[in-house]
Amino acid sequence: MFWGALITCLFVSILCFLFSYLIWKKREFSLIAGYNEESFKGDKEKLAKSVGLFLLIIGLLTLLLPFGLEFIGSVAGTLFAIIVIVGTIGLIIYINKI
Rank of each mutant, 00 (worst) to 15 (best):
M1L: 10
M1D: 07
F2P: 03
F2A: 01
W3I: 11
G4I: 12
T8W: 11
T8G: 14
C9N: 13
C9M: 09
L10A: 15
L10T: 14
F11C: 06
V12Y: 15
V12W: 13
S13T: 06
S13Q: 09
I14Y: 02
L15K: 12
L15G: 08
L15E: 07
F17E: 02
L18W: 15
F19W: 15
Y21N: 06
Y21R: 10
Y21S: 04
I23E: 08
I23M: 07
K25S: 11
F29M: 05
F29V: 07
S30P: 09
S30E: 05
I32Y: 02
A33N: 05
G34M: 09
Y35C: 00
N36P: 07
S39Y: 04
K41W: 04
G42M: 01
K44S: 11
K44V: 02
K44G: 13
E45C: 06
E45P: 09
K46H: 15
K46M: 09
S50P: 13
S50E: 15
V51Y: 04
L53Q: 13
L53R: 14
F54N: 14
L55R: 08
I57G: 05
I57Q: 03
G59V: 07
L60G: 13
L65E: 02
L65H: 05
P66I: 02
F67P: 01
F67H: 11
G68D: 00
L69D: 03
L69H: 06
L69C: 08
F71L: 11
F71H: 12
I72K: 06
G73H: 00
G73E: 01
V75Q: 07
T78M: 03
T78I: 07
A81S: 06
I83Y: 01
V84C: 02
V84S: 00
I85A: 07
V86C: 09
I89P: 08
I89S: 06
L91Y: 02
L91T: 03
I93K: 15
Y94N: 12
Y94M: 07
N96R: 08
N96Y: 04
K97N: 11
K97Q: 13
I98H: 09
